[in-house]
Design a protein around this nucleic acid. Sequence first.
RNA 1: CGGGGUGUAGCACAGUCCGGUAGUGUACCUGGUUUGGGACCAGGGGGUCGUAGGUUCGAAUCCUGCCACCCCGACCA
Length: 491
Amino acid sequence: MAKELPSRKEDYSLWYNELVKKADLAEHSDVRGCMVIKPYGYSIWEKMQQALDTMFKETGHVNAYFPLFVPKSFLAREASHVEGFAKECAIVTHYRLKNAEDGSGIIVDPEAKLEEELIVRPTSETVIWSTYRKWIQSYRDLPLLINQWANVVRWEMRTRLFLRTTEFLWQEGHTAHATSQEAVDETLQMLGVYAQFAEEFMAMPVYKGKKTESEKFPGAVDTYCIEAMMQDGKALQAGTSHFLGQNFAKAFEVQFANKEGKLEHVWGTSWGVSTRLMGALIMAHSDDDGLVLPPKLAPIHVVIVPIFRSEDELKAISEKADQIKSALKKSGYTVKFDNRDTHKPGFKFAEYELKGVPVRIAIGPRDLENGTVEVARRDTKEKKLISFDAIATDIPALLEDIQNNIYTKALSFRKEMTTPVDSFEEFEKVLEEKGGFLSAHWDGTAETEEKIKEKTKATIRCIPNDAQAENGTCIFSGKPSSRRVLFARAY
RNA sequence: CGGGGUGUAGCACAGUCCGGUAGUGUACCUGGUUUGGGACCAGGGGGUCGUAGGUUCGAAUCCUGCCACCCCGACCA
C-alpha cells in the first residue's frame, strides 16, 4: 500500500528516511541541507521542550535570547573555538539586494558590503560571553544560570533528517560561576539532567561519560556526553555538557571582584541538546509499522476509532467516546476521537500505528452491545477487550506500562549490544558482525584513537563516568591501561 | 571537495539507446456501493519533462554549459 515502510533490518537508513516522511515528522526542504519539521513532528519536539524546560527551571536556570549574528572578530577570540567551527560557518557579507542593470534579475548590491562579516551562530558562546562581560562585576552577580532556545547553523557536508541538518533547533545553557568546582558541579548536574530526561521521558538508556581530547568541544576544558544505542548498532551522541574552565572568560575578559576585592576570571559551562533527539527517539524504539512513541512524549496518548455503518451507530459511539475523552482528560491525557467517515477503520489503524500513538481504542456495534472496547497497545501490538467501566483506571496503567516496557526493551537491547573485548581481532570481529558498544582498554593516546578510527571507523564515544579502575592492556598498542572506554561506530 | 547516480503530475516511477508533440501506479475531485486491519466500480482534473543555449521541419529524447538533490568518502550535535 501507499504508506508501507521498507524493512528496518534490510536498509536501516532507507527505513529511517521513509519513516520520518511518512509519519509526518519532517522532510527535506528546498533549501540546501535544511529540514521542514511538520506539525506532527514539531508537536513531539514541543513535548520535549516542555519537559526539558521544566527540568532547567527546577535546577535554577532562566531563559533569555541572544542575537543570531556573531561578528567575525568575536569568533576569533577563542583560538580553539574558532578553529573548531571555522570550516562550517555561514557568513553574511552584504545587507542589500538590487535589480541588475542588464535586467537579468536581482543581484547582491556590491555597494552594500559589510565592513565586518557576520557569522550565523553555529553556537552562542562568543555572543553570550561578550554580553556576560557587561553583566558580571562582582561575586554577587554569580552564578549566572541562563538557557536559550534557539536555532543554529552549521554548514555540514552531508545532512540527514534530524540527525544532522544545516540549520537545527536546540537549547544551549551558558553559565558563569565564581569557582572551578561550582562550574564542574554544574556541568555534571546538567549531564545528569540530560540522562534523566533521556531515560524517563524518551525511555532511552544512555551512558554518561567524558569525551577524549580529540572529541571534545572546541574551547572546552572537558566535554561530557550522553551516548545512546540505536537499533542498527550505531551509537548516537544525544547531548553534551562542557566545562569551559576560564577559557571564554579570558577570551572575553569576564572578571569579577571576589569577597577579598580581587579580580578573578569567572568559570563557565555550556550544555545543549538539539532536534537530534528526535532522531534518537525514532531510532531507539520504532519498528517496520512506524513510530513507537513513549507515552510521556506522545502528543496524542489515545486515539479512539469508531466502527460504524450508519449515522445512528456513529452517534451512539460518539457519546461513549466523549465519556472516555473527558475521563482521561481528568488524568492529564490527550485523546483524539477520529470520526472521519472518509477513511475505513483499517486505514486509521495503520495510520496511527505509523504515527506511534501509544494506545488505540476501537468501538463498534458489538462493543456497544457488550459494554466493552477493544484496546490495542502500539509497542507490542497486543489487543484485548476491556469493559467500558474499566477505562478510567486501565488506560493510565497501560500507558505507564508502555513507558516502562519500551525502556526495559531498549535497556536490554543496549546490554546485549555492549560487548567487552580484549584484543584487536575480537574488536574488529564484534564490530563487523554485531556492532554496538565495545568496552575495551585504551592507552590514552590520541595516536591510538586515531589509528583505530582509521582502521575500523569506530570512535571512542566516551570514558564512562562510572568506569571502574581495572588494570589491562590497550587492545591496539598493548600499553598499560587503567580502565575501559566505550568504542562504537556512530552517527 | 573527490567518486558514483538522479532530475518527467503532490509522491513513486516508465518513456531517453533508436527524435514525431505526455504515460503508469498512487494521491486528489465527483457519484454510487462499502466500513471489526490499509475498500471497490465508474467518471474527472492536474505536467514550462531541473535550467540556459545549440542541432533539427520537429527535442523529454541528440550536443554543450549551469543548477539542484541523493548515495559512498572526508567533516560533524
